[in-house]
Design a binder for these strands. Structure first.
Lengths: 134, 134
DNA sequence: TATTGTTATACTCTATAACTATA
DNA sequence: TATAGTTATAGAGTATAACAATA
């Protein structure tokens, strides 16, 4: 029973991930780049904070931001209070892309799961909530 | 409302993925290698089938199996009916590792989610099931 | 001294294209 | 001809270690 529960959760995770990966790939973005786009929508973290969020080393994030910066999606700016730190944020182009892609995510996941019906959705959120404390 | 639902589902997916990635990394396995280990527990697919399952190109799977084979976790064997095809399966060592790691996954995800209580778990599976048709 | 970020290096993952063997 | 798999190649993602700038 416990096992069936965990399998269902893992399968559901792979399925959601696969949708996100596909939408990213269609726009030449890795899953990680897509995540960064999502994170930066309402934040302006320094490199170390971003790395902690993603569970990556800061050197890996340096590379990620390098490539996104070359594509004009993100930018860096020295933090004015601590001049060792570098803030990362979306350019207007990056923000546009983020908005568009997350609308695609809703479109892709919505119908599949919309079949649940609003009432079931509410119950699902209630059930998932305790698992969301990171 | 719909948005909150989708955010919860995506966050839950990232969280599950992060647990799987950590357990894999602690054993020098990528998330993909861990997935393959899981798939091969009860299957003996040919390379093309495995690629379809993972959503990867067959050349990528060739490399994955190469590296797992070098570590003694998987093995290849020519299919006797279609001699173009190659079956992939776990070695005894691979099977042992798979059993151990998936027990770790249950241990890691169980308590977090065990807090839900058995009754909520049953309801959650019922809710997730419609999303599991791949 | 400690922290922040970058760079150098090496390996894995992945896709595309070209190839071999079999159907 | 078409399909199954491998190999060659190239780029992204990642970690570790060494480094420069700032605290």
């Amino acid at each position: 029973m416990q096992d069936a529960f965990i399998d269902a959760l893992v399968q559901s995770a792979f399925q959601v991930t696969s949708v996100l990966t596909r939408i990213g790939a269609e726009n030449d973005l890795s899953l990680t780049q897509l995540r960064v786009l999502g994170i930066l929508r309402d934040r302006r973290p320094r490199v170390t904070e971003l790395a902690a969020h993603l569970g990556l080393e800061k050197s890996s994030v340096s590379g990620l931001v390098d490539r996104a910066e070359q594509r004009g999606l993100m930018a860096r700016e020295k933090n004015s209070e601590d001049r060792r730190a570098v803030d990362v944020f979306l350019t207007p182009a990056g923000r546009e892309l983020a908005v568009r892609l997350f609308s695609e995510v809703r479109t892709a996941l919505g119908p599949t799961l919309g079949a649940l019906g609003t009432e079931r959705q509410i119950r699902l959120i209630e059930l998932l909530e305790p698992t969301l404390d990171v």
